[in-house]
Design a protein around this nucleic acid. Structure first.
Lengths: 153, 153
DNA sequence: GCGGTTTAGTTGAACCTTCAACCATCGGGG
DNA sequence: CCCCGATGGTTGAAGGTTCAACTAAACCGC
């Protein structure tokens, strides 16, 4: 039984294309800046940020994966690299022998502190400076709606 | 001379985090669906789409890179794979001996035609169905503003 | 038409992500 | 207590992306 495709109308087309372009260019730009200035991709920066905000600057691998929006496997590989760089350390979890705890080293914290201003400046310049306060508000609502919709289904 | 960082205020923080999460999850979802249903990542799909819409279903490598939002290098690698899959063919450019023309094969077009309905359905389900018409309009304006801002600077 | 500078495109290495397979441990039901 | 399914995490291979280096041809000024 054939089901008719609900194609996008011209407005939706235009919206989708614009969204694709904007989000791709934005992320590429920030990623390249971060790589240039801090020597790490945005995904790794995100991991360090999550650790820095966690109590004791440490998290179980699963929770860290969740917080950083990463798969378990990806996080495992990433933490291996971050550990080699001396920014993160692994420890055994005392309450669950399967568990591993990732914790941010002082060196990792310092690297993050050094990278943050430039990155924030980039986010401001490339995103917020281009939008009116009303648009920022709209973007927040849209993103929150979307995130809920996506993780809910 | 120290320059003060213009940190994000709480509202901007929240917006940025929500945006990051939403766009990441949205793209991951669509990417996984496309990989599952059509056996290609979204970036490759994009290349086929651009070719399919070009006159004669062909484009110079540079123009294709531009249209698909890809670096030259990335496109070169990608087209190599697409060619191996039989979906794209390379030809020499008659007017510029440096040039290469990528052209969509019938098989590539058929693959795209088979993949499109499912993908469009995904875009609709994961994006448009979650937003009000007003929000779709807002998202279009925001994205267009942003794209212009980013490529302009 | 010569020489230097762009432009077009490719290549290989390093790196990142994904996927599936895997091991170890935990927790609950009989 | 023991078994079994679920959970936590890692691993290796395959695939995708980036970066820098490179070749070749076109363009430009003289």
């Amino acid at each position: 039984m054939a089901v008719m495709t609900r194609w996008l109308d011209p407005d939706e087309q235009r919206t989708w294309r614009a969204y694709l372009t904007a989000s791709r260019v934005l992320m590429d730009t920030l990623d390249r800046e971060l790589q240039r200035d801090a020597g790490m991709p945005h995904a790794y920066y995100e991991i360090l940020v999550q650790l820095s905000e966690a109590p004791g600057r440490q998290l179980r691998m699963s929770q860290l994966a969740q917080a950083a929006g990463s798969s378990r496997s990806r996080l495992s590989h990433a933490v291996a690299r971050l550990e080699a760089a001396g920014w993160v350390r692994r420890e055994d979890c005392p309450t669950d022998r399967r568990g591993q705890i990732a914790l941010l080293t002082d060196e990792g914290f310092a690297t993050l502190a050094a990278a943050a201003p430039g990155h924030v400046e980039g986010v401001r310049r490339h995103l917020f400076d281009a939008l009116s306060p009303a648009q920022v508000d709209q973007l927040r609502r849209i993103s929150e709606t979307l995130a809920e919709h996506l993780t809910g289904s």
